[in-house]
Computed example of a mutant assay.
Amino acid sequence: MSLQVGDLVTRISYGEDVLFRVTSVDDEANIELKGEELRLVADAPLSDLKKVDDDERTEFEQEQKKKEEQCYRLFRQDYRLMREKNEYELSSAYTTPNPQYFEMRGRVLHMDGDASYLQKCTAMYDRLGIPVYGAHMRETDMPHQVASLLEMVQPDILVITGHDAFTRSKGTDKDLKAYRHSKAFAQTVREARKAIPNLDDLIIFAGACQSYFEGLIRAGANFASSPSRVNIHALDPVYIASRVSMTPFLDRVQLSEVLRNTITGEDGLGGIDTKGVLRRGIPLKNQDDL
């Protein structure tokens, strides 16, 4: 079997559990891979790889689409409930029946180490109606770029993600050296906290597949991956950031509800008590001017 960059494969030794795209075939003993739907990087010898045919790829894509649509429906359902609560609170507070109010949703700065994932994420932000500025760069460049991006974009929410992996042969799950990019993610979080120290003034999500969750939280992230060192879906950071963006700033983000709407769940994602960033206003004139 021969492989080319861009081919889809699975790893035989791992039970063909993850779909990868080939990123380098310079050495048949060490072919570099990245997850097609999971934020994971890996390598494997040619002998351990199985090329995915068109029928298998179609089946996989349909299954992933089903998961994404299920999460989207859950998110929209929760948003409707939040909006109904907001309308009730405003109706109780103002003498005008059914006051028309406008919303200022939290702005997201999304830094991603993968250009294709960034495109997929920004499309979902747009679908959910979340203002976003996307920036693609290598994970190791993020600590050097985050301060200037924060100054330029002035976001309410910062997402730091890309690819990661935990390699047990390089150390325990408490050793940063055992992770592909957790060190860079943690450094980026610390640089962001130098600029904006308060946990409620800038909400940070950091991490990717199998990332060092505890280290990222200690560095200053509000949300991070991966508590159980499992893989996370490419869109998981979007759902967390979007929920924060749509939660009123006087309310606390309900962690259990947020994680329920992600594809990965509590094994792959976690966080600390955090306030929302949505602000509402009255009267509604022309929200497009805001």
Rank of each mutant, 00 (worst) to 15 (best):
G113I: 00
V244Y: 02
R57E: 11
L3Q: 07
E103Y: 07
K85Y: 07
P131V: 03
E139M: 01
Q287E: 13
Y72H: 11
A123T: 08
E37M: 04
P283D: 01
C71G: 14
F102Q: 08
P99R: 04
N30W: 08
P143T: 02
P237R: 04
F249M: 08
T140F: 11
V189E: 04
A123C: 05
N261L: 04
M104F: 08
L3S: 07
R107L: 04
P248S: 08
T188F: 02
G134C: 02
D126M: 02
G162W: 03
Y88P: 00
E61Q: 14
G268W: 01
P45G: 09
E103M: 07
V5A: 01
S13R: 12
D17S: 15
K34I: 12
G171S: 04
V238F: 02
I282T: 10
N286Y: 11
K183W: 01
K194P: 03
G265H: 03
L118Y: 09
D175H: 07
Q77V: 05
F166W: 15
D17C: 11
L250P: 01
T58R: 15
V5D: 04
E28F: 10
K34T: 14
I196S: 05
K67V: 05
D289T: 13
L19P: 13
N286E: 10
E28R: 08
L81V: 09
T161S: 14
K174R: 14
E139L: 02
R80K: 14
R260Y: 15
E266I: 13
Q287T: 12
S226H: 06
Y212F: 15
V159L: 02
Y88W: 10
N86D: 12
D141V: 05
V258H: 06
R279P: 03
S13D: 11
K120W: 11
T96G: 01
D141P: 10
E16H: 11
I157L: 00
N231I: 07
I130P: 12
R127L: 08
E151Y: 10
I130K: 04
S242Q: 02
V25T: 15
H110Q: 03
V9W: 00
S225H: 04
G207R: 00
D164T: 09
E84K: 15
A206S: 13
R76T: 14
T188P: 09
D17P: 05
E36V: 13
M111D: 05
G268M: 02
K120Q: 14
G268R: 03
S92N: 14
K50F: 05
K275C: 10
C209L: 00
G134A: 00
S228H: 10
A195Q: 11
M82E: 13
Q64A: 10
G265N: 01
D54E: 15
T247I: 06
